[in-house]
């Protein structure tokens, strides 16, 4: 699971108001190289929740992103784009869990695949 996916996921258990961001429990992180695509990054920049990405990136062992939402002028910096690219697309949570920030419910991640299925009483 890439951090792009983590940034798009929230807990949708019945009664949860703001199930985002899911807290990451990282047991195994792998890096996989992905083609660099600045247009996609520039386009996604406004849609990414920056703090969630920066925090998740830190937990995954890559503390290179600024904590606060950077000014969009940074998108002209190749160095910044490469860091953004690496955090968003190249870090994979292979084994671990995603934890609902409100209820503490754990959604397991095995072989890079999060299981978001809810039990009957959670729907």
């Amino acid at each position: 699971m890439r951090l792009l996916t983590h940034n798009m996921l929230s807990s949708n258990i019945k009664g949860v108001i703001n199930g985002f961001p899911l807290r990451i429990e990282a047991e195994r992180v792998v890096e996989k190289q992905v083609d660099f695509n600045p247009d996609f990054l520039k386009n996604m920049f406004s849609k990414i929740d920056w703090k969630a990405l920066a925090d998740a990136s830190k937990i995954m062992g890559y503390p290179e992103l600024p904590d606060e939402l950077p000014d969009s002028s940074l998108l002209d910096s190749d160095e910044f784009l490469h860091k953004f690219h690496h955090a968003l697309l190249e870090l994979h949570l292979e084994e671990g869990a995603l934890v609902c920030p409100e209820t503490g419910r754990r959604f397991p991640v095995n072989k890079g695949i999060p299981n978001m299925l809810l039990h009957e009483d959670e729907v």
Binding site: M1, R2, L4, T5, N7, M8, L9, S10, S11, N12, G19, F20, K32, V34, D49, F107, K111, G112, I113, P114, N115, M116, L117, L118
Partner: peptide, 29 residues
């Protein structure tokens, strides 16, 4: 989902995979 993963891998392409009901968990963001 696991079989999808294997099929993607056998062709050298990638998709982000989720075990979920339709798009539950993704609908907000």
């Amino acid at each position: 989902v696991r079989v999808t993963h294997e099929t993607l891998e056998a062709h050298g392409v990638h998709a982000e995979l989720l075990t979920t009901n339709i798009a539950a968990g993704l609908e907000k963001r």
